[in-house]
Amino acid sequence: MKTDIVLAGVGGQGILSIAAAIGLAAVKENLYIKQSEIHGMSQKGGEVYSHLRLSDKPVYSDMIPLGQGDLILSVEPLESLRYLPFLKKEGWLVTNSKGYLNIPDYPEIETLVKEIEKIPNHLLVDADRIAREAGSLKAANMVMLGAAAPFIQVSEENLEDAIRTLFARKGEEVVEKNVKAFRAGMKEAGEVS
């Protein structure tokens, strides 16, 4: 069993929190994990990604080999396309449909959607809307984690526990908002796919 996940987004969108939640859940299931992160200059409003590798056997490379990723989980549609070389043929592309427009030449959203729809296994989620409805726009990353949960080989209960652990420091209200967002994302994925 292995799940190789490329997490993608823009600096500040909380992809490292997604990585941390999946990591915690995977630790609970006694899986081997490697998680590479991007630090430094590119964090500042630029493209950010993380490779997360879960397996029941030891993991060698910190980077996912090209063409072998099982899942691209992106909090931003343009960013979801940047890492397609890592996705295997039957892999899933799960992305927020709402663009983060901080560059002057941001493509038309319809063009991006067309490219995303070329991937046979794709799931477009309006995470911003769902997060707002769940009580916090900031939790869009957890909506996306929920939407991608069916494609990650750790249990949904352990993911939810991980979210609780991760946000416990910030108080009960923040925990509940994030759990609610996670569940709403999961529900959305269940309805669409």
């Binding site: 823009v10 600096g11 200059m41 590119s42 964090q43 500042k44 409003g45 630029g46 493209e47 490379s61 980077m63 080999p65 090209l66 063409g67 343009l78 960013e79 396309l81 940047r82 397609l84 070389p85 890592f86 996705l87 901080n102 560059i103 030449d105 941001y106 493509p107 063009t111 991006l112 490219e115």
Partner: peptide, 29 residues
């Protein structure tokens, strides 16, 4: 990376997907 190394060792690896032309860079700001 594993792909470059695999190629260098003569393994028959499939060409990965390309990045769509529409994917403009997002430099740090």
């Amino acid at each position: 990376n594993p792909y470059l190394v695999g190629k260098a060792l003569g393994l028959p690896l499939e060409e990965p997907r390309g990045i769509p032309a529409v994917t403009v860079p997002r430099p740090p700001t």
